[in-house]
Each structure stands twice: as C-alpha cells, then as structure tokens.
Design a protein around this nucleic acid. Structure first.
Lengths: 141, 141
DNA sequence: AAAATATAGTTACCCTAACTAACTAATATA
DNA sequence: TATATTAGTTAGTTAGGGTAACTATATTTT
C-alpha cells in the first residue's frame, strides 16, 4: 500500500528533462533552444504572426515573445515588419531561417521517429489524444 | 502539406507549462513547488535515501538536491541524519512533513483525477506505457 | 601503512525559460 | 476630445536546472 504505482503524471514528468535536453542537443548546432524552435516552427507552419499572436498561440506572456524573437533576429533566422497597425510587428522567416527550419525539421523528425521505436501508430495516437484531453481539462481549470 | 498534423511531442510540450502551473497552484498552500514535492514524495514512498541516491533517482545533479533538501528542511518537512558512512546524509520526513504529505497526496490525487475526466482507464494506461517507452528510448539515446 | 583515487555534499556562479510591473507609442471608444 | 485599450519593450524576479571547484571522508593501489 505504501508503494504506489506510478501514474501517467509521474511518467509524464519523469520524461520531461531527458526529452528536452535531448532535443536541445540537436538544436545546439543551430544555436537554438526549444523555446525558440517552437516559435520558429510556429511562424513557419502557421504564420506569419504578430508578436501578440505568437504570445496567444504559445500561451506565454509578451515579454517572453520579445526575448525569443530578439534572439531569432540576432541569429538572422527571422525578421520583423511593421503592420498596417503601426504598433504591430509581423515576424517572418528569412531565407537563412527557411534553410535552418528545413534542415532541423528533417533532423528532428528522424530523431523523434527513433524515440517512438517499438510503439504502434495506434498507441501513439491514443497517447496524443490523452494528452490533448488533459490539456483541455487543465485549461478549463 | 505545409500544415503538419501536431505530433505526440507537440501535445506533450504544449501541456507542460499549464500542467506544472496548475500543480504548483495546489502546492502553494504548503509553500512547495513541484521539484520539492517530487523529492518529498520520493523519500516518503521509497525512502529514506541519501542525497546522492535522491540525485540518482530523480536524475538531477547533486547541487540541485542540496538546494531542494535545504528548502524542505527550512520548511520543517524533512530532516537529515548522518549515515554510517559519515559523508552521507539520510533524508527523512518529519512529523509535519508526514502530515503535509498525507494532505497533499489526497488533494493532488483528486485534482489529477479531475484532469483525466472523460478518459478511459485503458487509454490512460496506454499513454503511460507510451511515455515510459519513450523515456527508455531517450535514455539509451 | 602511506599515497593516490573516488565519493558525498556544499558553495559559487552560470543558464534557460518563464513571470509581473511599469513604461511608450499607437489605436479605439466614450 | 478625453479616456481606455492594445502592441511591444525594459527592468527586475523566480523556478529549476547545470558545471567547476572545493572539503571531508572512504576506498584502492602501491
């Protein structure tokens, strides 16, 4: 009775650091960290977005987006353009950013494929749905 | 083709902050954060452990364990005892720590139950197995 | 037994990744 | 036109981790 079975949440948390560190190792080649990669990928796949939109999509505050965007600009991966509304800054990939995205997307896809070795497509889908449902439950608080 | 389907890893990462923040909100009543709760729970459920053993179990470095343990001592939730080997410090719960553990364990169990509302036991188990398998794959990486 | 090596824990300092508060500039509303 | 809101920035804080270098004790080698 004192040895409780680990729950989904235990497994979830146990995986976090090893997973993020492993991804960061792959990103280091391009001087990126996961938080920056998440934004680069977001604006590439669903963008362009203003910084306010990025904040909303990624559920982080505006100052965090400023910092991430600034880092991506310093690296030459994105550029900003003033919007119609002069307060807004649209963020979009540069040519270099596109190249880096394409390359990393490939490398990470391969890596993540390795991480799911031995797991059926069906189980992966179930796991994804479970995490999505939990996210909905967390957000409705 | 440019709108990629979100993968398990996207869902995994998207959940992290909202989930941890929600747990931390519950822990705040006892002035705890998740990192400290993880250690408190570990030594209560599987302990007592030396700090080196805690480091190994939780896969963090020794200085992190020192910090976490010190915080738990300051809160009066744990105490240390010199081992046979005089370099070692065994960490164990105080009476207060036991009370806090019991209370929080209940509260968090209820909370986590809410988070899995609408998800079958079977799917939860599948999700857990998937995350465990990914962890193994990351670690052998 | 003495010297060299390894281990447990601490200290000092670093980093990422977030946060809030307070601000400026521009836009929208009363 | 005055007021309120919104986009983005700056400054300062926090959680949660890391490495390097250290002390004290144990272990291993010679």
């Amino acid at each position: 009775m004192s040895q409780k079975e680990p729950t989904l949440f235990d497994s979830y948390r146990e995986l976090y650091r090893p997973y993020v560190n492993a991804v960061n190792n792959r990103l280091a080649k391009y001087q990126l960290y996961t938080s920056q990669w998440v934004v680069l990928r977001l604006i590439r796949v669903k963008g362009p977005f203003t910084q306010a939109e990025i904040a909303k999509e990624t559920r982080v505050e505006k100052p965090s987006v400023t910092r991430i965007t600034q880092k991506l600009i310093d690296l030459g991966y994105v550029e900003t353009k003033q919007g119609e509304d002069k307060r807004e800054k649209y963020v979009r990939l540069t040519v270099l950013g596109e190249e880096v995205y394409e390359q990393l997307q490939k490398e990470l896809t391969d890596f993540l494929k390795d991480l799911t070795e031995g797991i059926s497509e069906e189980d992966l889908k179930t796991a994804r749905n479970v995490l999505n449902q939990i996210l909905q439950n967390v957000l409705r608080g």
